[in-house]
Design a protein around this nucleic acid. Structure first.
Length: 475
RNA sequence: GGUCCCAUCGUCUAAUGGUUAGGACACCGGGUUUUCAUCCCGGCAACCGGGGUUCGAAUCCCCGUGGGAUCACCA
């Protein structure tokens, strides 16, 4: 496999959501599997839409996912700079080259005039094409007018690595703007120059660009340059399936998932299998497995809906696959405040119990708070428990007393606790559903907890007896 | 509206002319000494419609229909 040079080229207009990051992921996978390079380029040519802090945010998002780049804005590289606003003179030079070839010209109209043309076309139900208004004697381009491409309209059929054969008629080709009147180039122009100069082998981008591709093809020809492999990814649709995932419609920042304690490897797995599969029945992939098996031509051609349920499930799967030390490291920032005074060893014992029921780390406090503090006594836990509500207060009190006395004799190892609890079952002739529920509720005051003996072992004798003693008088 | 793209369970998908249309998520049952979760077992559930081509079509072709993308001095 020839080393691929791929790039992710976002514009700094805010955060990254799942749809955007998936494009980066696929480009990264391709670079990795071919032992090539992955480039992070910033397309900051629209000053008006620029959002402060976006660059940092984008970098943090990609770092979190583990999509490291070999060249890019923050680390430089052989083709620096990687920020388009710092490459203006390059685009100007290429613009002049096109002017010299007779393939670009200064647009003499005001924006209002162009708008009039557009409106006329609309009124007569004709598609608007600027080239129908191409000036006969355009002024010399002095950089204050927009520079337009002088297109050579023709029909194209081309191969797309994902979509297969695509085609479009000459009406898809028009004289688009190469360089705006503010001196900044348009995406349509500068990405082509940068991809050429940076030796990009693949252009991987989302479907909203397909309709522009014929124009790019026309420009490649005018520039007399070879075009890279084009790959068009289907859009990721919102959960309602109505339209593409977008910030406007509330798509979540990828870093929100980081903050909620989702695992980056799960997120990667999820995004990769959103519209791609390897042809087997495998669902869970490590990053390395994705690198090894990813193929552009197995990417689905229709848009996929974003299904957060599936992400949640997948995160749980990855969560359970983690070593206990790994879980402990990653859980660090998610403990409830009460946990601060407890040792790492104690927390690790708790994690062993909750790891398999943790879907994401933000659930940690709710799942573990009773390990760190006595929760308020909550009678509804036993009055509404379907097993315990059959017993009257006296019976409950007797049972809990017996349990207390039995447990008091135990060394609080898991085996000892298990034995004592089993003895108690025999002695009282109670069903586990009754006895264990009662002890569990008495010692945790929580609606759910891990297995009883293990939980008691972690809580320890002192806490267990104290909590039982606190509950007894309330019965 | 023009142009382009797409079409299998509710969702993500497998199938590359011959399968009882498979798997996974979700959902619903059952099991694993309580609960929640895990795990195991089972269930529900799909080829958008109509024409062709073919011995045979989810698969190829055409026409509908539905969905999406795009029509900027945004990317």
């Amino acid at each position: 496999m020839k080393p691929a040079r791929t790039r992710f080229a976002p514009s700094p207009t805010g955060y990254l959501h799942v749809g955007g990051v998936r494009t980066a992921l696929f480009a990264w996978l391709l670079a990795k599997q071919s032992k090539g390079q992955f480039i992070l380029r910033l397309e900051d040519t629209d000053k008006a839409r620029e959002v402060q802090g976006s660059e940092r945010h984008i970098i943090d998002s990609l770092h979190w996912l583990g999509l490291q780049w070999d060249e890019g804005v923050d680390i430089g590289g052989p083709y620096a700079p990687y920020k388009q606003s710092e490459r203006l003179s390059i685009y100007k030079e290429w613009g002049e080259k096109l002017v010299a070839k007779g393939r670009a010209y200064a647009d003499p109209y005001t924006q209002a005039e162009v708008e009039t043309f557009r409106q006329q076309a609309k009124d007569s139900k004709q598609p608007f094409l600027f080239r129908n208004h191409r000036p006969e004697n355009p002024p010399i381009w002095d950089g204050t007018q927009p520079l337009r491409f002088k297109s050579d309209p023709k029909a194209y059929t081309w191969h797309d690595a994902v979509m297969g054969e695509l085609s479009a008629g000459e009406e898809a080709i028009d004289d688009f703007i190469l360089i705006k009147s503010d001196g900044y180039p348009t995406y349509n122009f500068c990405h082509i120059i940068d991809d050429l100069l940076m030796n990009c082998t693949h252009v991987i981008r989302s479907q909203e660009f397909v309709s522009s591709i014929p124009r790019f093809l026309n420009l490649y020809e005018a520039l007399e340059i070879e075009r890279p492999i084009l790959a068009t990814l289907p859009v990721v649709l919102g959960p309602d399936g109505k339209k593409k995932l977008s910030k406007r419609d509330g798509a979540k920042d990828i870093l929100d998932y980081a903050r909620e304690g989702y695992l980056p490897e799960a997120m990667m797995n999820f995004m990769a299998t959103l519209g791609w599969n390897d042809g087997t029945e495998q669902e869970i992939f490590s990053a390395q497995e994705l690198i090894d098996t990813f193929q552009l031509d197995r990417v689905q051609r229709g848009g996929a809906k974003f299904d957060e349920q599936r992400l949640l499930w997948m995160n749980g799967m990855h969560m359970r696959a983690l070593s206990i030390d790994d879980v402990a490291t990653r859980a660090q920032t998610f403990w409830p405040p009460e946990a601060a005074s407890y040792t790492d060893d104690y927390k690790k014992r708790i994690l062993r119990l909750v790891q398999e029921r943790l879907k994401y780390f933000a659930e940690l406090p709710a799942l573990t708070s009773f390990f760190f503090q006595d929760l308020p006594i909550n009678p509804s836990l036993w009055t509404e428990n379907k097993q315990l509500k059959k017993l009257n207060a006296g019976e409950l009190k007797n049972l809990l007393n017996l349990a207390r006395n039995t447990l008091a004799e135990c060394d609080f190892s898991v085996t000892c606790l298990t034995n004592h609890l089993n003895d108690l079952l025999e002695k009282t002739q109670q069903k586990p559903a009754v006895l264990f529920s009662l002890v569990r509720i008495a010692t945790t005051q929580a609606p759910a907890s891990p297995a009883l003996a293990e939980t008691l072992a972690v809580l320890g004798r002192e806490v267990v007896l104290r909590r039982i003693d606190a509950m007894l008088p309330t019965l």
